[in-house]
Design a protein around this nucleic acid. Sequence first.
DNA 1: CGTGCCAGGTGCCAT
DNA 2: ATGGCACTTGGCACG
Lengths: 237, 237
Amino acid sequence: MFGRCTVEYDGRAASSLGAGNRLLILKPDGTALVHTDEQRTPVNWQPPGSEHRAAVRDGRLRVRSVRENPDERLDVRFDRVEQVSALPVTGGRSVDVYGSEEDLRHRILDEPELVEPGFEPAATERATAAGPVDVFGHDDEGRPVVVELKRRRVGPDAAGQLGRYVEALARELPDGTEVRGVLVAPSVTDRAGELLAEKGLSHVPLSPPASSTTPSGDGRGSTTAPERSTDADDGAD
Amino acid sequence: MFGRCTVEYDGRAASSLGAGNRLLILKPDGTALVHTDEQRTPVNWQPPGSEHRAAVRDGRLRVRSVRENPDERLDVRFDRVEQVSALPVTGGRSVDVYGSEEDLRHRILDEPELVEPGFEPAATERATAAGPVDVFGHDDEGRPVVVELKRRRVGPDAAGQLGRYVEALARELPDGTEVRGVLVAPSVTDRAGELLAEKGLSHVPLSPPASSTTPSGDGRGSTTAPERSTDADDGAD
DNA sequence: CGTGCCAGGTGCCAT
DNA sequence: ATGGCACTTGGCACG
């Protein structure tokens, strides 16, 4: 729907939006989106699972979307409706994304020496008291190694996360066992680097496999070709 | 626009979406959104600042949106266009949200005893080597106190964040100075609670002021002018 | 369901 | 531009 409306939201937070022309999208799964002419993020919304209802009050259309747990409500009051469309959506709803953290994990399991020579992965998502460890394994001297993967440049939070895993494992393993921690990510910020150094953790610069040609820039050596590149025949257009 | 299309994305990651009827939204600020009939998140998109272009190839409409830094591209190829609308958006584009972390900070600055009796705030956003501290102050015995605010229930990350601030301040202040850390949030998860305990930090259960029951006026900080504050009316069911 | 964590996170604002 | 962080974060997978 498109038209002049006001929007009120109350729930996890609360907000109010004065009159203006906006686009209101109501999805059959209960999602509601109010979009203006800027930004990727809707100015107001209601998550999937909400219930939409429409009624005319004082001669004006009001669309109300409500959900519970948490209780929240979105009210869109129109004083003029410019357009209403019902659109029959079909086809795929989700995409496989290449270049994710999972792809990075596969890359490392395929070639553990990318982490360091002699590294031997033992488990993924290994449970610890501090949460699941992305890749757990041992170095060339048999020392336990915790590997935390990030698909992009990281800040201090990732260093903290890795540190928690290392500490949790150190407690879990026999007293005195030295546990190493390796952060695998394209790069780290200065602060994150300092934090890693403080905690005795290390960083291995490595990116998820490029889905298509991202040739120059990252001098991260010409490691073997990712099989992912089978979409190369797409070109043409 | 609405119609049957395929969608290809390549940039920070890469994805491919087979043919189907979807809604394509092109905003004048360069945003592009591809929505299916589910979820709040678009199945594909392009951020603001991108450039949209349309062309007919092999008798089919192709919309391409490109941006640089990072380089990324979205291609939507239609084989049938069901509807095209150009909608004149007007009016406010952003909302004042109540119940934010900032509101929680105001609440605490108004009533510091909510943190603990005798707490005296000294600064907000106080800079440290580990980042800005939400509220910095002193307790009834003059000890420095770092307060980290969260508007909702928090996990281990918040405990880590607070811990980093406390440690950074402890280093900055004269040797031996005891720095206390208080996490103000509605609640904490078990794991976060353990982490807090380990680090000698404490938790004060407190929520942002409820919007619907906000009793008295509060001078909202330095930011935008709230022109639409008085709208307490709520149409009964 | 809650907990934990990734995400093409987005968006805001500081240096 | 990069960094650090909040967000009605959203979404998923696992306990």
